[in-house]
Nucleic acid binder design. Structure first.
Lengths: 242, 242
DNA sequence: TCAGTTCATATAGCGTTGCTATAGGTGCTA
DNA sequence: TAGCACCTATAGCAACGCTATATGAACTGA
C-alpha cells in the first residue's frame, strides 16, 4: 500500500510494477500483485496500459530513459574512444544495478519490443563512434562497430548478471571492452589470423619463460622463490622432450 | 497428434515439448498443449518431469547435447585458434537454427538453470583454448579468454536472433569473432588501452607453460614441487592486469 | 497361482492467472 | 440541468500450472 494517496492511478501502477519487477528475482509478477500494491483494481490497469505487456513496456521505457540519461551524463572527454569506454562501463553498471529491468530490456523476454530498444542503444553508441570516425580513429563503419560493441556489451552484462554477485569478476568486462574497442580502432599493428610455427611443448615454453623472467626482473616472486623456480625451469627445459 | 503410438509417453512428451517450443515464436507454451500433442494427460507429465520447468530442462539438456556434439564434431585442425573460430561459428549457427531453444539455453528465461549450461559451454571453449595456450598462442588465461569469448558469442547470437531474418548480417558475427580471438591471442603488435609490453612476454610464456605442464603430466618434478611451481606460475601469469 | 508391490496413467478439480462485459461515479461544457 | 467524455469498480470467464485420488498393468516372491 505504498502508493495510495496523492498520485494518479496511472503513476501508482507504474511505480508498483517497477518496484515489484525489481524485487522479484526473475520470478513472474502478477497483475493482481501490481494492482493491489497500487491500490486500484484490474480494469484500471487495462484502461491505461491495454494489457500487462503494455504496462511493462511503459516501465521499460522509463528505465530506458534512465539508461540513456546515464549514457549521456558525463562530459565528453574529447577522446571519443575514451567516451565509448565509459559508455560500456555505464551499460554494465546499469545492468548490474537493475538486473530485472535490464533483463526485460536486453534479455529475450518479449522479443517483439527488444529490437526497438536495442536500436536506440545502438544509436547512442553510433553517435559517439561517428566522432571517432571523424577523427580518423576508426577501422570500420561506425554502424558496424556500434552493433559489434553493443552485442559484446550485452553478452558480458548478461553473463555477469547470471553469475552470483559474490563471484562477479569485472575483469571480464574490462577485458572484453578493450578487446572490442581495440578491434574497431585504427592504429593496430597486424591482424589476427596468422599463427606462428606450430606445436610448442613444455620445453619450449619453459625456455621462453626462463629467458623472459631473467630479462624482466619480475617482482611477483621473492628472490629465493625465484631461484628455486628457475632451477625447476632448468630441470624441465633440459629434460628430454615429450 | 504426431506422437501417438509406438513411443513411450516420456519420449512423446519430450518431442511434443520440443516441437511446440520450436514453433511458438517466443510465445508461452502450455502444459495442456504439450500433453494434448503427446496424447497423454497432465499427471503423466508431472510423473516423469516433476513440473513444467523440469520438462523444459530435459528439452534443453537434449538440445545442449546436440550443441556439444556440433562443437566437437569437426576434426581438430591442429591450429587451436582456427578451431575456436569454428566453435564460434557453430555456436551462432546453432542459435539461428533453433532460436527458441537457444533462448531457453542462453537467454535469460529461468536464470537458475542458465549458469550450468553456460559453464559447460565455457568448458568446451576453455578446453580448446588450453591447447592454444600450450602452443604459446594465448595472451591471457584460458579461462578468462573462454568467458570473454563466450560472452561476446552469446551477445552476438542474441542480437542476430532478435533482428528479422531477412536483415541478418553475419558480418557482425565474423567481425566480433575475429576481434575477440585476436584480443586473446598473442602475436599482436600492441594491446588495447594498456601498456605493459615488457612484462607481457613473461605472462605469455607462463600461461603457455602452465597449460603445457597441466596437460603433459611431466615427471620432472615431484608432485609437491609441481604444486608449488604451478602456484607460482599462476601468480606470475595473473599479475599483469589491473 | 496369486497376493503384494511398484510403476504409469487417467478422472476430476483446486487455486491463480490475464483479461473483460457491464455499469456507476465524476467532472466538464453548453 | 442535460449531456458527454473520462475513469474506476463489481463480478466473473477461460485458461493456466498443478495435484489428490483412483485405476490399470507389470513384475516379484511364495
Amino acid at each position: 500500500m505504498s502508493f495510495d494517496g496523492q498520485l494518479p492511478p496511472k503513476m501508482r501502477l507504474l511505480r508498483a510494477a517497477a518496484e515489484l519487477l525489481a524485487k522479484s528475482a526473475g520470478a513472474a509478477v502478477s497483475t493482481r500483485q501490481i494492482t493491489q500494491l497500487a491500490g486500484v483494481t484490474a480494469p484500471t490497469l487495462y484502461h491505461h496500459f491495454g494489457d500487462k505487456e503494455g504496462l511493462f513496456d511503459a516501465v521499460v521505457a522509463a528505465g530506458f530513459e534512465e539508461y540513456v540519461a546515464g549514457e549521456r551524463d558525463f562530459a565528453p572527454s574529447g577522446q571519443p574512444l575514451v567516451d565509448i569506454r565509459r559508455m560500456w562501463d555505464n551499460h554494465v553498471q546499469f545492468g548490474l544495478a537493475q538486473p530485472e529491468l535490464y533483463l526485460v530490456m536486453f534479455g529475450n523476454i518479449r522479443p517483439e519490443s527488444r529490437p526497438a530498444i536495442v536500436a536506440d542503444a545502438e544509436g547512442l553508441l553510433e553517435e559517439m563512434l561517428n566522432k571517432a570516425a571523424a577523427a580518423g580513429q576508426l577501422n570500420v563503419q561506425p554502424r558496424e562497430a556500434a552493433r559489434s560493441i553493443l552485442a559484446a556489451n550485452v553478452g558480458v552484462t548478461l553473463m555477469l548478471i547470471a553469475e552470483p554477485a559474490a563471484e562477479r569478476n569485472l575483469e571480464l568486462s574490462t577485458m572484453t571492452r578493450d578487446a572490442m574497442i581495440f578491434a574497431v580502432s585504427r592504429d593496430q599493428g597486424r591482424d589476427a589470423g596468422a599463427e606462428d610455427s606450430g606445436k610448442s611443448s613444455v620445453v619450449v615454453a619453459a625456455i621462453a619463460l626462463n629467458a623472459a623472467l631473467q630479462a624482466s626482473h619480475s617482482d611477483q616472486l621473492t628472490s629465493s622463490e625465484l631461484k628455486l623456480f628457475l632451477e625447476w625451469l632448468h630441470r624441465i627445459s633440459t629434460s628430454s622432450t615429450s
